[in-house]
């Protein structure tokens, strides 16, 4: 009897605080998300929270997204997908080939090159916004399809950062591939291009997939450039479209906004959760090892 009491007390001392902390923070984490879910199902679409348990469930807000001309959600979603997929594919190739060269090839100025890349990467993109704007405004004058206001132009601007952004994650991975593999291939007469395409790319495929998905998510989440570039209603991305839709009118437009943000978030959260392991190891790469 007394030993049982002791174990209960011990359990309380050892574990209760753990549950309390985890539960408290979980409620904090879930609260806004739960709120969005129930307001997206609320038939009145109002921002006001009448009760925590929805009394009536309606898909009206979701229907509005696909029918109302004020929220061309499908076009936005298509724009977002096209831009994000293109950025993902191109930036993987740009990033992977640079990481391979920095990690495996020996050449003059390698170290300086990396340092310049690092330094340039620290210049926050928003600060150079006015300059990017001026450049693309000029491009618009002779090539309207690539300049300001075009999705292709936005894609080009996004690719400017492709070389630097994922270089840590990629280089960490390249470093973990044994050098002996390349050396053996080299002895067999393989050129660096062959080593890259036939040895590195197949081995790195999982990491490349993670990098592609990371830049996919990052692009969907980008706001200010997309906002500056895509002025027309139909050409906007989901993020910009929903932000402009809700701007200043929380009370009227909350319902469809909530529905739209859920539709955008579900795929992103799903991708993130399924790649958790890789993303977390990417986050800590270079520090835990240090």
């Amino acid at each position: 009897m007394s030993t049982q009491k002791l174990t209960i007390r011990k359990w309380f001392r050892e574990n209760l605080w753990r549950h309390a902390v985890a539960l408290g923070m979980s409620i904090f984490a879930l609260f806004p998300l739960y709120l969005v879910v129930i307001s997206s199902l609320n038939p009145t679409g109002s921002l006001q929270l009448t009760s925590f348990i929805p009394r009536e469930i309606s898909w009206n807000n979701y229907k509005l997204l696909f029918t109302s001309p004020a929220i061309p959600f499908l076009s936005w979603f298509r724009n977002s997908l096209v831009i994000a997929i293109a950025v993902a594919i191109f930036s993987v190739f740009i990033g992977a080939s640079s990481a391979f060269a920095f990690s495996r090839l020996r050449f003059k100025g390698r170290k300086q090159g990396v340092q310049i890349l690092l330094l340039v990467q620290m210049f926050p993109a928003i600060l150079a916004l006015s300059a990017v704007y001026v450049i693309m405004e000029r491009v618009y004058k002779f090539a309207p399809n690539l300049g300001l206001g075009s999705q292709a132009g936005l894609l080009l601007v996004y690719l400017g950062g492709a070389m630097g952004v994922n270089i840590w994650l990629l280089k960490g991975f390249v470093d973990s591939i044994p050098v002996e593999l390349d050396e053996a291939a080299k002895i067999d007469g393989a050129s660096p291009m062959q080593i890259y395409w036939l040895i590195f790319v197949p081995l790195a495929a999982p990491v490349l997939a993670v990098v592609a998905l990371l830049s996919f998510i990052g692009t969907l989440n980008e706001y200010i450039l997309a906002r500056l570039f895509l002025v027309e209603m139909e050409s906007r991305t989901v993020a910009v479209g929903l932000q402009q839709f809700i701007a200043g009118q929380y009370s009227q437009n909350w319902g469809p906004f909530a529905a739209g943000s859920i539709l955008l978030s579900i795929p992103i959260v799903a991708i993130f959760l399924s790649l958790q392991r890789y993303i977390v190891s990417g986050l800590t790469a270079g520090s835990v090892k240090g």
């Binding site: 916004l129 080009l156 950062g161 660096p192």
Partner: peptide
């Protein structure tokens, strides 16, 4: 290996 990335970097990061 560098050139495509570098061209984008120069045009949209370094030049700005």
């Amino acid at each position: 290996f560098f050139l495509p990335g570098t061209l984008f970097l120069v045009a949209f990061v370094i030049a700005p």
